[in-house]
Design a protein around this nucleic acid. Structure first.
Lengths: 215, 215
DNA sequence: TGACAATTCACACCATCATGTGAAATGCGT
DNA sequence: ACGCATTTCACATGATGGTGTGAATTGTCA
């Protein structure tokens, strides 16, 4: 990046001291110019109307007033071309997930040094998604929970097939027709499934199947 | 990390030249010792039986023979305590996702310098998930598409509570005791839940609750 | 205060499920 | 050829679930 083309930034952060500190640190590199500095999301959103959009936005999700997640959603809509980086203390899993789903492209901790923040901004604008690795771990955990590794309870293919039908909300009678066997057979398979999964109700089996992605 | 406690590593990579190069580079730091160096996943899996498991594994997913994804799954099961880092060329999205779902905790490009690989290993063992930022971007994109939007079926708090109990595999009688109401009340709530979720069996409700993260 | 949602409880009927018990056919590997 | 797992089917009984119907209480909001 040549000194002649600094990247324009917005900072949204209620802690004025911290905000100024980051702004000064980033500007000192010569790579950035802070064209907006706001203590609330509302202020930043007003500024959008005035034009002159930034190339990247650093936003704290623990803001007073408007919910940080909501702010990210709106910024993503209003500034589709801008890089959007969340700068935060270590949040709970749910908040991280929601921020990502809202459209955040980077996720850094406030403890990150200015050099790391600067690198992250460039990274986001180059098509990457810099993330603190501990946050990344959380993301991957949730991610793989959505599609976890199949545990092996030794279910046979027929048992898996019937369990899958159960997960789809069908009752035994329907499954019998669907699979093409008698209801007695379905009954027997269900018993064996219960034994193998160590449950004793349909809902227990369905819950276990979905939680552990057995089907 | 003191020089007296090097981290034991396995490298699984079919390109012998590259593998040796990485091994030498990592050992030269004094932080690591390559206790295993394999050109196929099969070889590594055999070694597991012999005991002496590594603290971390670097694996290429573009291996000949056994599918790299499958290898990761088995390694994750057999070496649950080991850090598992994928070292690869830039793969297609589907492969990245599957590797992560299989249990990979880090995802680096083969072009990464040894210093970055070394840092990544330490990072994984410290509870992080270092990822190349371009790969992270791909993950976030899929992620934000994959995570279901929490639909609002207008379940009341009591209904949510009872649905949650159902998901845990309890039967109505048990729920009545647990929640502290009569079984008739549980019955009524379940009816309303069925109406709202548009299902008519427990397993249907449980399935919907888990699939759409209602509980 | 009156409308409305949420929560609670009750009875009854039939459907469905869980479980004990028994048995037969098939296929696979040793 | 023999054992073993898988899959199939059957009968029976008590427990549990699903649904129609009705009603009382509580709290909230207009």
């Amino acid at each position: 990046m040549t000194p002649g083309t600094p990247t324009s930034l917005w900072l949204i952060e209620d802690n004025t001291t911290f905000r100024s500190s980051v702004a000064r640190g980033l500007e000192r590199t010569g790579q950035f110019v802070c064209s907006g500095s706001f203590s609330s999301a509302e202020q930043a959103l007003e500024m959008i109307q005035a034009g002159n959009p930034p190339q990247a936005v650093l936003i704290d999700v623990g803001l007073p007033g408007m919910d940080g997640i909501e702010a990210i959603q709106i910024l993503r809509q209003q500034l589709p071309k801008a890089g959007l980086i969340v700068l935060t203390v270590f949040e709970d899993e749910e908040k991280i997930i929601r921020a990502i789903c809202a459209g955040a492209q980077g996720y850094l901790l406030k403890t990150a040094p200015v050099s790391e923040i600067a690198a992250a901004i460039e990274d986001v604008l180059a098509g990457g998604s810099p993330m603190n690795s501990r946050i990344a771990r959380r993301v991957l955990e949730v991610f793989s929970r959505l599609v976890p590794v199949k545990k092996d309870y030794g279910l046979t293919s027929r048992e898996q097939e019937i369990l899958q039908q159960m997960v789809q909300g069908h009752i035994k009678k329907e499954i019998a027709v669907q699979v093409g066997v008698s209801i007695h057979t379905v009954n027997t398979h269900m018993r064996n499934i219960y034994d193998k999964l160590q449950v004793n109700t349909v809902n227990g089996a369905v819950a276990k199947a979905l939680k552990e992605r057995l089907v």
